[in-house]
């Protein structure tokens, strides 16, 4: 067997094992069931509202279902992503499985890459399940298949992958999943508040004090370096997309590239931490 197939074989073995292991986690199954109940329940929620009817009333119902489902996918999706990214490495350290794996002819970067790919398989599987049920719910409620929502789910996934990359990096330094889980939530919340840093930068300097200007420059620097997860929030544009919408065509590939670069950075940090870890 040549080197390249062996490399991919090991990678696949680790990622498929991670996937199988992850899908057995009760907390993930709990989140998944909650999200599915929310999505399914959204169709019932509108039935109890007094907005039901025709015309604009019926369209309000459809909007409520869409928004509840997209929000449920985002919230439960990111919780699943954070919990799984935070736990795959520390739990193997905890139960000492990692020693058995690394005693095989597997390089540490191979192990990390395999684990990360396994996490992505779990996230993708969960997103597919939630998205699929969303489509079914919307089809039964409104008789429509919202294909544009595929783009919002795709962008949601790339938002998750950024959170996943950095949470994974933190998890490589931790011995239990608690700290990386908190860090993951922090990354997600901070990533959504990055926009405020730019606002601080644009408003800084109004007092003429040097301290004010320095704060502005620091805010600008942080705004440049930190991932801005609000960029992935193109739900409004996509859900209300008109034909011939050129900005969306160019934004989507740029956002994917943006996410992938942060993932590379996150994985690099993870390897930098993990390579010297005493195991």
């Amino acid at each position: 067997m040549t080197a390249i197939p062996v490399f991919f074989h090991s990678l696949w073995s680790i990622s498929s094992y991670t996937w199988r292991e992850g899908m057995r986690k009760k907390i993930l199954i709990g989140f998944l069931i909650l999200s599915l109940l929310t999505i399914f329940g959204a169709t019932f929620l509108t039935a109890f509202l007094e907005t039901g009817g025709t015309g604009a009333d019926a369209e309000v119902d459809a909007k409520l279902v869409k928004d509840i489902c997209v929000t449920a996918i985002s919230i439960f999706g990111v919780l699943i992503t954070i919990f799984i990214s935070a736990s795959v490495v520390p739990s193997e350290v905890e139960n000492k499985v990692i020693y058995t794996v690394l005693s095989k002819p597997v390089r540490r970067y191979q192990y990390l890459l395999g684990k990360f790919l396994g996490v992505q398989l779990i996230v993708l599987m969960n997103l597919a399940l939630m998205g699929g049920l969303f489509f079914v719910a919307l089809y039964f409620q409104e008789g429509i298949l919202p294909t544009l929502l595929l783009w919002t789910i795709l962008l949601t996934y790339f938002e998750f992958i950024v959170v996943s990359g950095f949470t994974f990096a933190v998890s490589c330094a931790a011995t239990s999943p608690v700290l990386p889980t908190i860090a993951g939530l922090f990354i997600y919340i901070t990533g959504h508040l990055t926009e405020y840093l730019y606002d601080v930068y644009t408003r800084a300097g109004q007092t003429g004090e040097w301290g004010d200007q320095v704060i502005g420059q620091i805010a600008y620097g942080l705004w440049l370096v930190l991932p801005n997860l609000q960029n992935f929030n193109m739900r409004s544009q996509l859900l209300h997309l008109q034909p011939n919408d050129p900005p969306a065509d160019i934004m989507i590939p740029n956002l994917i590239l943006y996410a992938l670069l942060f993932v590379v950075a996150g994985l690099g940090i993870a390897y930098w931490i993990f390579r010297r870890k005493e195991l």
């Binding site: 801005n228 960029n231 934004m251 740029n254 590379v264 950075a265 690099g268």
Partner: peptide, 21 residues
Amino acid sequence: IAIILALVLASWQGARVSELR
């Protein structure tokens, strides 16, 4: 260096995305 390069590229891409927005 590779990590810094990736972060710089990501920041540059972030600035590009912001400009696009």
